[in-house]
Amino acid sequence: RPLSCPNHEGKTMEFYCEACETAMCGECRAGEHREHGTVLLRDV
């Protein structure tokens, strides 16, 4: 079952931030994590 983002209601966490070692949604990735290296969560 997909994980919901606690910061963006209705968004699914699909990415993993390698710098912060945390899962995130597309909005997180485009925002606070935009300078960080990210991979698809399913690839982690």
Rank of each mutant, 00 (worst) to 15 (best):
M24F: 08
G37K: 08
M13K: 06
E35D: 14
T22D: 07
A23R: 11
Y16G: 01
E35V: 07
A19L: 08
K11S: 06
T38I: 14
G26L: 02
A23D: 13
E9M: 08
A23P: 14
N7F: 15
C20N: 03
H8V: 03
C25D: 02
L41P: 08
A23T: 11
R34Q: 15
E35P: 03
E21R: 04
F15W: 07
T22F: 03
A19Q: 13
M13T: 12
C28F: 01
C17R: 01
C5K: 00
E21P: 00
L40D: 05
M13V: 08
G37C: 13
L41T: 06
F15Q: 02
T12L: 09
A30F: 15
A30L: 11
H8M: 06
L3C: 00
E35Q: 07
T12Y: 15
L41H: 06
R1A: 11
E18R: 12
E9Y: 05
C17K: 02
G26E: 10
C17W: 00
D43F: 04
E9N: 07
C17T: 03
E35Y: 02
P2C: 04
E32K: 09
E21H: 14
P6D: 12
H36L: 02
R42L: 05
C5V: 00
R1L: 00
V44I: 09
A23I: 02
P6W: 02
E35W: 03
K11R: 09
H36P: 02
S4Y: 15
E35G: 10
R42A: 09
D43S: 09
L3E: 14
L41F: 05
L40G: 09
F15Y: 08
A19G: 12
E32S: 14
K11G: 09
E35N: 13
E27L: 09
H8S: 06
P2M: 15
A23V: 05
P6A: 12
E9K: 08
E32D: 14
G31A: 08
L40S: 10
G10I: 09
H33D: 05
E9A: 05
R29S: 14
F15S: 05
D43W: 00
T38P: 11
V44A: 11
P2V: 15
M13P: 14
H36C: 11
G26K: 09
L3P: 04
T22L: 08
R42T: 05
C20M: 00
E14R: 03
T12W: 08
L3W: 00
H36K: 07
T38Y: 03
M24K: 03
A23S: 09
N7I: 13
